[in-house]
Design a protein around this nucleic acid. Structure first.
Length: 431
RNA sequence: GGAGAGGUGGCUGAGUGGUCGAAAGCGGCACCCUGCUAAGGUGUUAUACGGGCAACUGUAUCGAGGGUUCGAAUCCCUCUCUCUCCGCCA
């Protein structure tokens, strides 16, 4: 959520910034909503003030056994008016809040203007090599390899559950588990993160805090048998909501949390897209990194965050590139986002495997997450960031494709071998 | 799932219908005093929103939401969370 006072004072500046996202705030509407709300507030408060004064007076008179009938009538009259005003007020507050909640975050000045992922700025290629241009050999898709090995099955999964689920067996299941452990261990041991085990079922307040609600309800799985329960779309939500309604001391920050968790997404808008393999599933594992920092530290923390995620790809020896998302591709809550894209040889393109964002105070304003400034002793909003480090399923897919041998075996990356009894290859039917 | 107890300011804890945004203590902050690793004194001590250039001022907040009442931390209802016991269970 944007700062309503800033929006009131610097409307044009903020609106120009949002125009880069092809988003525009209706100025007339904003002013009318804002003014309407304020005038109702002031009318209501005047009435309440009058009521409070008279009620006190009645109290005093009663203690002296004096007649209060006239005054009581007057309060009754005010209560009637208040009832109407209160109704208008709650309507107006809702309108105001909804209006603000549906405005995306302003963008950092370095975010390139652009409409689609084609306009994203490529920061670098690992090994300085653009494989999209240099790759000639044809590779088999990871799901085909998995089936060939007898260790991957989507058909049985859809029998058990539905489409967009899969089963991994034997060596692939182990490799998948090893990946999760390896990633989270690296962030704990080398990057200073604290591991957190989080709830996978959460309430709507949490989802509103991080920005998934109210706008993106359709992307979520909502539980039927209990009110206000949702499956987490990412551990970002429970991790970031640890900060909700909290006031930190300056010394508490930065806080760095990581979690290996399942993520659940309805993928409502992606029918027919990426139906093959592990790329787009209803359920997947991801290692999430979440930071809470002082406002002036969030930009450098973003660099650190993306480097931490990048480290995993480097240790796994996977080819990738780093891109800075353009204005229209940057997520709703983010003011600046870097993606890491891993090379998928069968598709001859780079696919998103991590997304690292700085949210500024956009989330903390919704979350009510603050810190106490040592100098001014005022409470101010913290800045939050998060990134994937990395998506486990997609990483598995990338390893399968990049490390396939001519005979169909998969070479296990050196960094993962300690997690797999020092095995070097995953072979056919290695159950 | 059943039975009971309870949720008050940063913390402890008083408060069962009016002057209670809330006693007291602790902690925090400021100042004063004191020449010795400490103690004492005085004052201050929430958040959000509205109005005002400002000093300031209004409103709301005692787990949440409703209700009764001229008036609710206090009475009633619903929900929620914590604790204890029983049941069930990884």
């Amino acid at each position: 959520m944007l700062d309503p006072k800033k929006l009131r004072e610097n409307f044009d500046e903020i609106n120009n910034n949002l125009n880069k996202r092809n988003f525009s705030i209706d100025k007339k509407k904003f002013i009318s909503i804002d003014e309407n709300r304020r005038s109702i507030i002031s009318e209501t408060e005047k009435l309440k003030n009058k009521k409070n004064i008279i009620s006190k007076e009645i109290g005093e008179l009663k203690s002296k056994n004096k007649d209060t009938e006239l005054l009581e009538k007057e309060v009754e009259d005010i209560n009637g008016k208040l009832k109407e005003k209160n109704f208008l007020l709650s309507e107006s507050e809702n309108e105001y809040r909804n209006f603000l909640l549906n405005i995306p975050n302003t963008l950092h000045e370095s975010v390139p203007q652009g409409n689609s992922e084609k306009d994203n700025k490529i920061i670098k290629y690992s090994n300085d090599l653009n494989l999209e241009k240099s790759s000639t050999k044809n590779f088999t898709d990871h799901s085909e390899i998995g089936k060939f090995l007898g260790l991957y099955d989507q058909d049985i999964a859809s029998k058990i559950s539905s489409s967009r689920f899969s089963l991994l067996f034997g060596g692939l299941a182990q490799l998948h588990r090893a990946l999760g452990s390896f990633m989270i261990d690296t962030h704990i041991n080398s990057h200073g993160y604290t591991e957190v085990n989080v709830p996978l079922i959460i309430n709507s307040d949490s989802l509103t805090g991080t920005g998934q609600l109210p706008k993106f309800k359709d992307d979520l799985f909502e539980l039927k048998n209990k009110e206000d329960f949702f499956l987490i779309p990412t551990a970002e939500v429970p991790l970031t909501n640890i900060f909700r309604n909290k006031v930190f001391e300056e010394g508490d920050l930065p806080i760095k949390y990581t979690s290996l968790s399942y993520c659940f997404r309805s993928e409502a808008g992606s029918y027919g897209k990426d139906t093959k393999g592990l790329i787009r599933q209803h359920q997947f594992e991801k290692v999430e990194l979440v930071n809470a920092v002082l406002p002036d530290k969030s930009n450098e923390m973003l660099d650190l965050l993306i480097a931490n995620a990048e480290k995993i790809l480097q240790l796994l020896d996977l080819p990738y590139r780093k891109v800075l998302l353009c204005s229209n591709d940057t997520g709703f809550s983010s003011c600046m986002t870097y993606d890491l894209e891993v090379w998928m040889p069968s598709q001859k393109l780079y696919r998103e495997i991590s997304s690292c964002s700085n949210f500024g105070d956009f989330q903390s304003r919704r979350l009510n997450a603050k810190y106490k400034d040592k100098l001014t002793k005022k409470k101010q909003y913290i800045h939050t960031l998060n990134g994937s480090g990395l998506a486990v399923g997609r990483t598995l897919a990338a390893i399968i494709e990049n490390n396939q041998n001519d005979d169909g075996d998969i070479e296990i990356p050196v960094a993962l071998r300690p997690y797999m009894n020092n095995m070097k290859y995953i072979k056919k039917d290695s159950k």
